[in-house]
Structures are given as structure tokens and as C-alpha cells.
Computed example of a mutant assay.
Amino acid sequence: MKIAEGRMGKWLGILSGPILSLIAFVVSYYLDPLNFGGQKELAAIPALLFSIIVLLIGQGINTDLEIRKASMYSGQACEAVKDYLHVIKIGSPEKALQYIIGRMPSLREVDNTSFNIEGEQERASEKYYDTDTYNDSCKQIAYYSSKKLIWKDIGDSWAIDRFREIETASRRLAKGNACHYKYKLIGHKDPQMNFIILEYADDTREVLFNWDFRGIGKDPIVLLSRDHQVIEMFAIHYAQLWKRASFDHDSVATKSTSTK
């Protein structure tokens, strides 16, 4: 019904100009405002000019309405895309890590992955793991996970030493109390996405992704999304990874458990 009405309105807009132009010609011709009298041929000239002017005005108005309508629809489409995606460019991995560090006091749980392949390890170390920002983040993770923050890491063989250091520091800061830092390992070398899901104390969540140094000569730009469906997609993937991964049998937690 709405489609039919829209088509009818479109055709009325197209035909309104010629119809008004024809009416203007007939009225002007018979009223003869320039008093040509019996010379009807001459009276047709101003009538024709007047009808052309009316036609041009009508077409101009119709064109302006169509442009405004198209602009309105375009704006609505852009807003719909923005509202759905909720994707924000954070910047380099180091800048993204600074973003996370600044929010640690208000976080409740963090699910993080740390995967690298041999070809990207050197670049990732130079631009990320060997930076002061990353070293500071490890200290912050250890501190807050020794309190109430639940921090879960999944990584590969490249991440073992880093995970063990964080766990040791977290347990030392906990001073015998519960340590909320946990990690698991995946042994295979298949490439995996790197992402991190942040859950705040007020139940809101966001995911940061596109951390991987896998483009030759091109560093990643980390993206952030607060879209529920996007976050759920990553959360499901993380749950599957956690299920398939295994605990580090040489970790501090495993050793302390086995000696009891």
C-alpha cells in the first residue's frame, strides 16, 4: 500500500508541472492580458512564454523536493549504520592498551587473547610487548587481579613467560588471598584473532579487536565496538577457545595446588 502511494505521489510530482503549464497557457491565451484583440496568433506568444515559466518553476520545485528527500534518506541510512556498528577507531595497539589501563579501576572482568605467529613476533615485540606501556599494563593487571578484577588470558607458546610473570606478581600482591588472574594455553600454531572483551562494574561491555601485526609493513589500527551482537560474537569465540585450551602445568597455581 505504501509503495503504491509512493509511486502515485512520484507521478503526481512529475505531472504537476506540465499540467500547470498547460493551464497557464490556456488561461493566458483566452484572457489575453496584452490586449492583442483579434490577433490570436500574437496572443499565443506571451501565453506560451508564461506556460514555459510555470513549467520551469514547477520542475525546479519538484527537483528541490526530490533532492531534500534523497538527502534525508541518506542521512537516515548513515545514522542507522553508525547506530548498528558502533565501531570506533582507537589507534595503535599501544594507544589501545593505554585506553584499557585507564579503565582498569572500573572493570569487573576481562577476557583477553594473546596470539602471535613466528613471522609477526619481532614486529609485535618492537611495537607492543617491549614498550613501557605494556610493562606498565602487566603491573596494573597483577595489581587489580590481586584485588577483585577477574582477568583471563588465552595465549600460545609465545605468551607463556609473560603470563607466568603476571600470575607470580598477582599472587605476591594478593598476600595469600584469592588471586583472580587465570590463563590457559593453546599449543597449535594456527593463526587466531587477538581481541579483548572488557566488562565494567555497571554490566556494560565493549570489545577491542584488530590487534594483529600480520600486514607486511603495516601496523594495525585497533577498533572498539559496544554493539551487543558484535560483543556476543567475540564472547562465544572466546568461550570456545577457553574450553579447548589447557592450563599451564608449570604455572605457579598448578604447582601450589599439586603440593597441597
Rank of each mutant, 00 (worst) to 15 (best):
F163D: 00
L55C: 07
L97F: 09
E66M: 12
S251A: 04
A24R: 00
V230D: 08
D83E: 15
Y134T: 09
K243D: 12
K243E: 13
A24T: 05
L12C: 09
H188W: 13
R7W: 10
D153L: 09
V252E: 10
Y183V: 02
L97S: 13
K147G: 02
R171Q: 13
Y128M: 09
V26A: 14
K40D: 13
L224D: 07
W158V: 01
R162Q: 00
N35E: 07
H249A: 12
E5G: 15
M104W: 06
K10W: 14
I231K: 05
R108M: 09
V81L: 11
Y84Q: 06
S51M: 03
H188T: 12
F195C: 00
F195W: 08
L20W: 00
V207H: 03
I14A: 09
G217S: 11
I221A: 14
D161R: 06
Q192R: 15
N116D: 04
L31W: 03
S145F: 08
K148D: 03
I23D: 03
H228D: 14
E41M: 14
E41Q: 13
G155L: 05
G6K: 14
A70Y: 10
Q240R: 15
F36D: 02
E120N: 11
L15S: 08
D32L: 08
R164N: 10
F115Y: 07
R172M: 05
M104I: 06
I67C: 03
R103I: 03
S137N: 01
A159M: 04
N112Y: 00
A96C: 13
F115W: 04
I141N: 10
I53R: 11
D202A: 11
Y238W: 06
N177D: 03
M193D: 04
R123V: 08
R108V: 05
N177G: 05
C138G: 04
A77S: 13
I236C: 09
G176C: 14
A159H: 00
L12S: 06
I45V: 15
R205P: 03
T257R: 15
P18T: 02
D136N: 15
H188R: 14
G176D: 11
G217T: 03
E165G: 12
V26E: 12
E41G: 15
T254E: 11
A178T: 15
G102C: 11
A96F: 12
N116W: 00
I101L: 15
Q229T: 14
G215P: 00
L55S: 05
G6M: 14
R171A: 12
W11A: 13
Y30I: 13
G37N: 07
A77T: 10
S125N: 10
F115G: 01
R68S: 11
